[in-house]
Computed example of a mutant assay.
Amino acid sequence: MAAENQSITPAKRKRLLKTYGPCPAGYTYDELERFLDLLCGMYSDLYTCTELRNIVVHNPFDRSEHPQQIKLLDLVDWLECLLI
């Protein structure tokens, strides 16, 4: 699902890590990988690539009263950056 299976450029990786931060506290890489698999499974068969680019979700790791909004594909790419 992640951006049509294209590899993430170093510039995009840097931007994602700067914007969304490092690995969320309290989560293991195994847990993030399972979450990423779940996330991809939930959306990949239901939407086209164009539709996926427009879906905005709340950052599931932001525990504030008003969680940060994030594009679904940015969330997937960010998780992939953390798992590399």
Rank of each mutant, 00 (worst) to 15 (best):
L36M: 05
L36E: 09
L36A: 07
D37W: 04
D37S: 12
D37R: 07
L38T: 10
L38G: 11
L38H: 09
L39D: 00
L39E: 00
L39Q: 00
C40N: 14
C40R: 13
C40K: 15
C40Y: 04
G41R: 02
G41D: 00
M42T: 00
M42E: 06
M42G: 02
Y43K: 03
Y43M: 03
Y43E: 06
Y43L: 06
S44P: 00
S44W: 05
S44K: 12
S44D: 14
S44F: 08
S44Q: 14
S44A: 14
D45P: 00
D45T: 13
D45A: 14
D45F: 09
D45L: 14
D45Q: 14
L46W: 09
L46G: 10
L46Q: 06
Y47G: 03
C49T: 07
C49W: 01
T50Y: 01
T50E: 12
E51G: 07
E51M: 08
E51Q: 13
E51N: 04
E51I: 10
L52E: 02
L52V: 01
L52R: 00
L52S: 02
R53W: 11
R53T: 14
N54R: 11
I55A: 05
I55G: 12
I55W: 11
I55D: 08
I55V: 14
I55T: 14
V56K: 02
V56R: 00
H58T: 12
H58G: 05
P60Q: 04
P60Y: 01
F61Q: 04
F61H: 00
D62F: 01
D62I: 06
R63S: 11
R63D: 09
R63C: 09
R63K: 12
S64I: 15
S64Y: 01
S64V: 10
S64H: 05
E65R: 00
E65I: 12
E65S: 09
H66S: 15
H66A: 15
H66L: 13
H66C: 15
P67D: 07
P67A: 05
Q68M: 15
Q69F: 07
Q69W: 01
I70G: 03
I70D: 02
I70M: 06
K71M: 12
K71E: 08
K71S: 10
K71W: 12
L72A: 11
L72K: 05
L73Y: 03
L73G: 00
L73S: 01
L73E: 07
L73P: 04
D74R: 10
D74A: 15
L75V: 11
L75R: 07
V76F: 10
V76D: 07
D77C: 15
D77M: 15
D77E: 12
D77V: 10
